[in-house]
Amino acid sequence: MADVVLNHISKTYNKGEVKAVTDVSFEVEKGELFGLIGPDGAGKTSIFRVLTTLLLPDAGSASVNGLDVVKDWKAIRKRVGYMPGKFSLYQDLTVEENLNFFATVFNTSVAENYDLIKDIYVQIEPFKDRRAGKLSGGMKQKLALCCALIHRPKVLFLDEPTTGVDTVSRKEFWEMLKRLKEQGITILVSTPYMDEATLCERIALIQDGKILSIDTPAQVVKQFPKNLYAIKSERMSQLLRDIRHLDYIDSCNSFGEYHHITFRDEDDYEIQKKLIADLNSKNHEYIEFKATPATIEDCFIKLLDQHE
């Protein structure tokens, strides 16, 4: 059974002037780890706020745990955990005080649900007397997650939990989410980091308030329409410009140490040989050229391209 359902949800601000979310529909299954992937301003936060009953949609309907987000707002608020974009903690309260406060607000106690947060809490426990404002980004993130979990929610909404947090903490965070999922909690998470998409079971790519694609990460990648190649040479920025000038190239984007390219029409050994020859003539040396699997980010760029 779908735990979260969105039916043609639209949301605007400033009397319709700013379109935050346009006709968005998707479903999240019970116990699923679902990712909303898109840049800042794509409408992720608005969707989360509609689902957590904080905003009324302009059009469409939505339900969480079988309850309507407009009518049953009180009941929904008892069942969901929510971690807003900014780690919403009381900076002037200690780690322990924050946790105890939120536990009480949610009508429970830390002891009652300690098993659920134990794995996470032990990592911040050495700092339990420290004020939340004095914690690092990674620690704040863990404390905020503990606070959102303290009442054993049925559905967990995490709005950009990994923004501004370094790679190590991000990896640890995703490990935690996997363990939570095993407990049967439905998790909706949003992120601007494309590389985190593969850690979700299913993802929705979103830009300008519209869904570009919804599927499993593997399926999204499979739908990439062309063969993708990686290329590098000694002078990467010059290489990018030179390749973009070639008329038989469809796209060329920098991707870490390589540039990713697709060909416009024919895509065979001949055209590849021509590419290397053309680049050699422009004094590029030590060219490395190989086929490469598409990433979510490649797909996102391609989808944006098609959209415009």
């Binding site: 898109g38 840049p39 800042d40 794509a42 923004t163 501004g164 601007p192 494309m194 830009q207 920025s237 990018l240 984007n253 920098s254 980010e297 996102f300 760029i301 944006l304 391209d305």
Partner: peptide, 17 residues
């Protein structure tokens, strides 16, 4: 480039280059 979409992020790096 925090939070910027992948296309704009690359355009940004073009400016840096």
């Amino acid at each position: 480039t925090g939070g910027v979409d992948p296309v704009t992020r690359r355009q940004f790096w073009d400016l840096i280059y």
